[in-house]
Design a protein around this nucleic acid. Structure first.
Length: 522
DNA sequence: TCAACTATCACGTTTGAAGGGT
DNA sequence: AACCCTTCAAACGTGATAGTTG
């Protein structure tokens, strides 16, 4: 099916010409020395570049560093077009981020996933109003160090753990027209962070006590297939850098969260929990905080505006309603988030944490946008391919699954929803034995994880998900990959190119195959 | 012993269904 | 019948805390 997709897209000039037979997500330029590349990756070192492709930067597992001298953009022959220099991004809740950044932002990560607060909320400009864009977010290590909180500040405590690579969060409104994206701020409120390496929920996996930098990618692509070679712009905002923690270390950060996060209202000074705590005599020192807790945070304001937005929004009917809260209808005209001014914190008595970008130069608008050479999706997929190659010690081309059906340019391809690696090559992506307890011994889609399916909107538009059969035996039946047989393609829907059975959609609430009649362009 | 991690708790917010009014 | 508004309960998101782990 990928082959057909590729041929079709090439016929329309939407895909690069190259050797046929490569999985579209893997692109055309895989590193020649996969083993070496993978080892570097696992060691957390990504300075090395593959010999055949200028992947000097941009792997999701890459820690952040200045863009290479590439001048930015893909060399001829590489997939991916030039980024659009007109596209600009601005951090909407910049003031709030600055408040946190002043003390060293911490983000809680939990096994089940925790939202970010503050959330990354940006507005885009310069998009082509009628072009479809995907907006993605990933989080990359900011450096290769592990930290500990000692004496009220963060200090380096050793070398970083290997980063679990490449999960991309696709904004649930994707794809949408440039006009739609520019109409409202783009919020990543629903993105969750986890420290569970086996996470199957599609959350972004981070290591505790490590420093990270979120990145936003705006990709001009009408569908998931062309996403991989479409032109893209990458933005990162230095003040959104944060430390992943399992428990807050800096009580100033705790206080800022309590004061600004509406969900933590119960912990404010007038809250019962706070009162109880005070009665217990364990209240944190808040004397350093000069500001009274704001009545409403920026997020709370958003929530307030949410209902208005739902009523007023005239062109959001196709967008995920659950996310509209982030984009109040009038918010684009609001000069400044008033709540951002409510938190006013004195300068810290201790020097800023060492991971803060010194000095703090805040760019409200990122001009030199691109930091990646390669599409984030493609680079993630390349990494996965490298892992596979390493594991299998073989250069057997990936199996291409056939899907004999008609293609429609603006239709969401079911191929795009299938697992990134063709079966069975993605049964494992790591060295050593297969983790116990995983279906078929496979890692849970370890790298790219097909973050495409992380769009609840797309999921909600998939009315033909396979329901689990009532028959217990049938429900329990597993195929050679350990996946439920009821998820497999119906009889007659066979692969013409693969000897192995077509891999079913992974068992994941967001990862079911979407029927090909579901339009991708909303 | 201790730092890091996890499960659980109580609270506030969000969400969406249900019902009534216009 | 269609829309709007209110109410309410369940689900969800929080930081705090005590216990567990390595």
């Amino acid at each position: 099916m990928y082959e057909e997709e590729l041929l079709y897209l090439r016929s329309r000039g939407m895909a690069p010409v190259g050797q046929l037979g490569l999985h579209p997500y893997l692109g055309a330029g895989l590193p020649a020395n996969l083993t070496d590349h993978l080892d570097k990756y696992r060691l957390g070192f990504h300075g090395g570049v593959p010999t055949q492709a200028p992947f000097g930067h941009g792997f999701p597992g890459d820690y952040l560093k200045p863009p290479p001298q590439c001048g930015g953009f893909p060399t001829p022959g590489l997939p991916g077009g030039k980024p659009d220099p007109r596209i600009k991004a601005r951090l909407e809740n910049e003031n709030l981020w600055n408040q946190f950044n002043k003390f060293g932002t911490e983000m809680i990560i939990t096994k089940l996933g925790r939202r970010m607060f503050p959330t990354v909320k940006m507005s885009a400009s310069g998009l082509e109003p009628n072009t479809k864009y995907y907006v993605l977010m990933d989080i990359v290590p900011a450096d290769d160090s592990r930290y500990k909180f000692q004496g009220k500040e963060w200090v380096v405590a050793g070398k970083a753990e290997p980063h679990m690579p490449g999960r991309l969060y696709i904004h649930p409104d994707s794809p949408a027209s440039g006009a739609q994206w520019m109409r409202h701020p783009i919020s990543f409120q629903k993105l969750k962070l986890t420290n569970n390496n086996l996470d199957q929920q599609g959350h972004i996996i981070l290591n505790s006590m490590h420093k990270y930098q979120p990145r936003i990618h705006i990709v001009a692509a009408p569908d998931l297939v062309s996403l991989h070679w479409a032109p893209f712009n990458t933005f990162n905002f230095p003040q959104t850098c944060f430390m992943a923690v399992t428990a807050y270390q800096n009580e100033r950060i705790t206080q800022l969260k309590i004061d600004n996060n509406p969900f933590a209202k119960g912990f404010r000074e007038n809250g019962q929990l706070r009162s109880k705590k005070r009665a217990g005599g364990t209240s944190p020192q808040t004397g350093e905080m000069t500001a009274a807790p704001p009545e409403k945070s920026s997020e709370a304001d958003d929530a307030t505006l949410d209902k208005r937005a739902r009523l007023n929004s005239v062109d959001s009917g196709d967008l995920d309603v659950s996310d509209i809260e982030d984009r109040p209808a009038s918010s684009m005209s609001v000069e400044k988030d008033p709540s951002d001014e409510k938190v006013d914190v004195e300068s810290p008595p201790t020097p800023p944490p060492p991971f803060l970008p010194p000095p703090l130069i805040i760019k409200s608008e990122v001009e030199e946008t691109p930091t990646s050479l390669v599409s984030p999706l493609m680079s993630a997929a390349s990494m996965m391919a490298a892992a596979v190659a390493e594991t299998r010690k073989s250069h057997t081309p990936p199996t291409i699954l056939a899907d004999p059906r008609a293609h429609e340019v603006n239709m969401l391809s079911p191929a795009a929803i299938r697992p990134c690696l063709p079966s069975p090559t993605y049964s494992t992506g790591l060295h050593g034995s297969i983790p116990a307890g995983l279906p078929g011994g496979s890692l849970p889609y370890p790298y790219l994880y097909y973050s495409h399916m992380m769009s609840p909107y797309l999921l909600s538009r998939a009315p033909q998900l396979h329901p689990a059969p009532l028959d217990k035996a049938a429900a329990a039946a597993r195929d050679m990959y350990g996946y439920p047989t009821y998820l497999r393609s119906p009889p007659g829907h066979h692969s013409s190119l693969s000897a192995t059975p077509s891999r079913p959609a992974p068992i994941h609430p967001y990862s079911y195959a979407i029927p090909h009649q579901v339009p991708a362009n909303l």
